[in-house]
Design a protein around this nucleic acid. Structure first.
Lengths: 229, 229
DNA sequence: AGATAAATGCGTAAAAATGACACTTTGATA
DNA sequence: TATCAAAGTGTCATTTTTACGCATTTATCT
């Protein structure tokens, strides 16, 4: 009985996480200042190596937790990067994962302790290796996802205004949307609960707060649709 | 200067290729009868191991060539599969690639010598490991691709009839399409050249042959669109 | 009390896309 | 020359999308 493919080469397999967040200022990504060589002190995606007895999805979760304290984050696999010299130390293939999370919910404190930091997409620093390319591809995927699945549950606070949702979509798609049409399209998805309560920060009149209807939201997640914004 | 990440585990990295082809009979995939253990003699995707100094894209090309003699095939990366026991011999992560190719152009002879064989999607045998899952995901991706990029250049003969193109789309999407609407939608893409020449096999009247307008086709490949069939 | 500013809600006209549908043409064959 | 089988071709009603307009509501600011 065969117990190894002896002639085949083994390589290091890494995972890098692109974590998107959103707040009043716009779409952000979570980066860390690398605390080991090479490129120590430079900004990078949150990454680490796959262990021998670990599934990639789990590795992504573990690595994210190790560097940020974040847990219960659902990430999706994106792409495997394999340029020979992408990591100058040793041949490493890296599989990228991405997630959307709610910045407020996820304890800025903890992230701080771990030296992770949010950056606006627009003015993020240059990243090490091929991480900038990974981020660009992740943004592309995020845009696509936006057109076939509802987005927001993961990125907005529990209660949010229509304007916030609109601004989220505008930030992801990086284009302006007509408020009236946007509202009626979103309403037609039937994934929101309108609350009695209003947010009085934003204006004198105040704007109604909404929450996501979790059940309907998840139903929509299962069955792709086309959302034309 | 650091020259290894000594504490990290190394793993085998494989590539598996899902090769789609099309002929009068419909959409097919190319499989091989495994000539080594484990699962020797069973049907499987065309796969092999990444070499230490090789990029994944190149590995896919090399492996496909090794087992089928095919060359100059453009493949796209799909997904990395990493279940712990997906390969019973040794921990192996596999990255799947897929391609569309023209069955006729690619020399049935050569494929035969290499023991590779075309199977209709519908009645392909069960495959080893997680290869069935890989195929299902590739079909999903192929359908998606169909809705945002033109397809056919890779799958049809140089000259083809509208009916052939229609049947290709029907095979990929596995649904019937209205001939008249299909033709006008395809024409609106402006990627076809209508020839003077007719194909007289198909009917007494004969049907016009078309070729792809390579330039416009590739322009469309760059800029995604939405094709609603 | 009145002005203000933003949110909301209703509406609609024009443009675009979708989808359903049927008859004519053609060349080979008998 | 009548028949056949497949190719080829256009119209129109409906729905969806888009781009706006505008009157109303309401808490606050003066």
């Amino acid at each position: 009985m065969l117990n190894s493919y002896s002639s085949a080469d083994k390589v290091l397999l890494a995972v890098d996480c692109i974590i998107f967040g959103f707040d009043n200022e716009g779409l952000k990504i979570l980066l860390i200042k690398r605390d080991f060589e090479p490129e120590k002190g430079k900004w990078s995606l949150i990454g680490g190596f796959l262990k021998r007895d670990e599934v990639l999805d789990d590795a992504a979760i573990r690595i994210l937790n190790t560097y940020t304290g974040l847990h219960d984050i659902y990430m999706e696999q994106l792409y495997a990067y394999s340029d020979i010299d992408r990591d100058p130390v040793e041949r490493t293939i890296s599989v990228s994962y991405y997630a959307l999370i709610n910045i407020e919910n996820h304890n800025a404190e903890l992230i701080k302790n771990y030296h992770a930091q949010w950056f606006s997409i627009a003015d993020a620093p240059n990243l090490i290796f091929d991480h900038d390319e990974m981020v660009q591809n992740a943004i592309k995927r995020l845009r696509y996802r936006t057109s076939i699945k509802p987005i927001g549950f993961e990125l907005l606070p529990e209660k949010f205004t229509m304007r916030q949702l609109l601004e989220l979509y505008e930030a992801i798609l990086s284009k302006e949307l007509d408020k009236r049409n946007f509202i009626s399209k979103i309403n037609s998805l039937e994934i929101l609960n309108k609350l009695e309560e209003k947010d009085m920060q934003s204006s004198r009149k105040g704007s109604y707060l909404y929450t996501f209807n979790k059940e309907k939201y998840e139903e929509k997640l299962l069955n792709d649709f086309v959302l034309n914004l």
